[in-house]
Design a protein around this nucleic acid. Structure first.
Length: 188
DNA sequence: CCTACGATCTGCT
DNA sequence: GCAGATCGTAGGG
């Protein structure tokens, strides 16, 4: 018996808590009739409008960032470097652009399909590779996370979490130093 | 309309 | 360790 995270999980006002608590949860997709799943092991929180590293910094509301302003519980998928689709979970309520970037997962189900989609290692150890493994593209931008395309299931509790600054946001000044990156600790 | 650049990955050194 | 790939956005003219 598996439990799918309800929209209320995402709609809370603390994006840092959601980011941390997503560790250990299971990100699932159904694409081309195939279900693939992976355990979330790394996330980053983005807290617009005050967070300069966030696309929606200073309430910048455009066609791309629009989804971040929606009510929590939908997917924000955008293209990075013209190549990679990056998957985020939108949190908080309508009008507040908070989101959590999923940076890495550990394959659980549909591993052969992931191998086929990727064609190389690592299977899903980065934000751009995990979307490829799960078949997630920008076509999924705005889809509900309690639907049957993309959803997140409750997983095993996480033992230990390490935090640190977010990756690739050096341009964001003091905001780049915020310890808003969360990882499942590999050490004992 | 036009141009600069990015929440990355890969292959080669 | 580093540069090139590659194209949708955003912002300025």
């Amino acid at each position: 018996m598996t439990t799918i995270l309800p929209r209320s999980f995402y709609q809370r006002d603390d994006v840092l808590a959601v980011s941390r608590e997503l560790l250990g949860m299971v990100l699932c997709s159904k694409v081309d009739g195939v279900v693939t799943k992976g355990r979330i092991v790394e996330t980053e929180a983005y807290r617009g409008p005050e967070d300069r590293a966030c696309h929606a910094y200073n309430d910048r509301r455009t066609e791309r960032t629009e989804v971040m302003f929606w009510d929590g519980g939908v997917a924000y998928v955008y293209l990075c470097y013209g190549i990679h689709s990056l998957f985020n979970v939108v949190t908080h309520c309508e009008g507040v652009p908070h989101a959590v970037l999923v940076r890495a997962i550990e394959p659980i189900e549909g591993v052969e399909t992931m191998r086929k989609r990727r064609g190389r290692e690592p299977l899903a150890g980065g934000p751009g590779t995990l979307t490829q493994a799960l078949g997630i593209t920008t076509a999924h931008n705005g889809v509900a996370l309690d639907g049957d395309l993309i959803w997140i299931e409750e997983g095993q509790p996480v033992e230990k979490v390490t935090t640190g600054p977010r990756i690739g946001v050096d341009y964001a000044g003091e905001w780049a130093e915020m310890p808003w990156r969360f990882r499942v600790s590999t050490s004992c």
